[in-house]
């Protein structure tokens, strides 16, 4: 994760935290054992977002369907804002992800949390994704069209 590109770096860790399970974050939070003060600016709230997609990846946009999302905004140490948008309805998950996001923006916490929390979770998510991809690609079917001859 590149520190020269702070927005992309933050997008990446927010994604990792959102995809992690609540149990994983709970365990990491317990190990982090910070007594940093947090204030709930926007308590976790659950709503729907419309997921949009492009047919074939590059065709016209269409509404694919609605997805349940929980979001949360916390104010951490030094007034830093931690945001989280996570799939599902787990308020605790959103709170934990927002708390980690706040700490990750603070230089004094970043390196430790990157090493102990984000990197292992990201590695695990990459493994899981690769395994799924491998399983799915075995069933891939190539569709070939034979053009009818003119005349």
């Amino acid at each position: 994760m590149s520190l020269e590109r702070p927005i992309e770096a933050r997008q990446e860790w927010m994604g990792v935290l959102a995809r992690a399970s609540r149990e994983q974050l709970e365990r990491c939070w317990h190990e982090t054992s910070t007594d940093a003060p947090f204030v709930e600016l926007k308590p976790p709230e659950t709503g729907l977002v419309m997921v949009r997609a492009r047919s074939g990846g590059n065709g016209p946009q269409f509404n694919m369907g609605e997805m349940t999302v929980t979001r949360c905004i916390l104010r951490g140490p030094h007034g830093v804002l931690g945001h989280a948008y996570v799939a599902g309805r787990d308020h605790r998950h959103a709170r934990l992800a927002a708390a980690f996001d706040a700490l990750l923006q603070l230089p004094e916490h970043r390196a430790a949390i990157m090493d102990r929390v984000v990197a292992p979770l990201a590695a695990e998510q990459r493994r899981r994704r690769a395994a799924r991809w491998a399983a799915a690609s075995r069933t891939k079917v190539e569709f070939l069209t034979v053009a009818r001859e003119a005349g």
């Binding site: 520190l3 933050r10 104010r75 007034g79 830093v80 923006q105 603070l106 230089p107």
Partner: peptide
């Protein structure tokens, strides 16, 4: 832009309704 500028917009506001 360095990493620490992400911290720049210090929370100007407090919580709303509980």
């Amino acid at each position: 832009m360095t990493m620490d500028q992400l911290v720049a917009p210090l929370a100007p506001c407090g919580p709303g309704f509980a």
